[in-house]
């Protein structure tokens, strides 16, 4: 089943009098359960494409479909609802709320989706166990290492059982060991839960984990390769 469908998407930024074409007409289809890497040099459009798929930004032209729903026509609140119910995010910086504990950070999407307390507790503990952080549940982000913070972010991204997880350079700020650990967790969860992962990276070690590699260059897809 097609989770993401991108039809001729272009994104033009106007900064002063300068027009920057971040995407120039991208077509892409991602199937359920894929573990896809978006690769390419800086400025190739990886992050912009992820933002289009994640309903964080809207294309200048073209259409984006998530689970066969056209998300380009949604208003601000509808896009927030779409993100809350369907999409999980992992960012390059360890995007946790600094005042909340690991447990509470993972809890946030569940609260926003109105899950009952008992259900929330069960799900959070299950996810913290999956990322091997059960003993760190009550620690705040500043008491966790970078790798641990990114694992909390992975757990949070999965909390609401989304169909799609978008990760923007998830290992860029991690050392090799922690980077590998995060990628292995993501890969394992992809296999176990069947959730679709799309991640932007230019780290060759990370690319090796991908089952499909989409290469972008100057806002266009240059190559689309199934690796296994």
């Amino acid at each position: 089943m097609e989770v993401v469908k991108i039809e001729n998407v272009a994104r033009v930024y106007q900064i002063g009098k300068v027009e920057t074409k971040a995407l120039r007409g991208v077509n892409l289809s991602i199937e359920n359960g894929e573990f896809t890497a978006l690769v390419g040099p800086s400025g190739s459009g990886k992050t912009t494409l992820l933002q289009m798929i994640g309903c964080l930004d809207q294309p200048t032209t073209g259409k984006v479909f998530i689970n066969n729903k056209d998300v380009t026509s949604l208003n601000r609140n509808q896009r927030a609802d779409m993100r809350r119910g369907t999409i999980g995010f992992i960012f390059q910086f360890f995007a946790l709320i600094p005042t909340l504990t690991a447990y509470e950070n993972v809890e946030m999407p569940l609260l926003l989706n109105g899950h009952a307390p008992a259900e929330r507790r069960e799900r959070i503990m299950e996810l913290l166990k999956a990322v091997d952080l059960t003993d760190r549940a009550n620690n705040r982000p500043d008491q966790l290492s970078g790798g641990q913070q990114q694992r909390v972010a992975v757990a949070r991204a999965l909390a609401s059982k989304p169909t799609l997880i978008l990760a923007d350079e998830p290992t860029a700020n991690l050392d090799t060991t922690n980077g590998q650990q995060v990628m292995e967790i993501m890969k394992r969860l992809n296999k176990e839960t069947g959730v679709t992962f799309i991640f932007a990276t230019h780290d060759p070690r990370v690319i090796n984990y991908a089952s499909r590699v989409v290469t972008l260059q100057d806002g266009l897809i240059e190559k689309d390769t199934q690796t296994r």
Binding site: G54, L56, R76, N77, A80, D81, M82, R83, R84, G85, G88, F89, F91, A95, L96, I97, M108, P109, L112, N113, R156
Partner: peptide
Amino acid sequence: GILAAIGMRG
């Protein structure tokens, strides 16, 4: 931005 990304409405 993080709160908005995880779906918190305005």
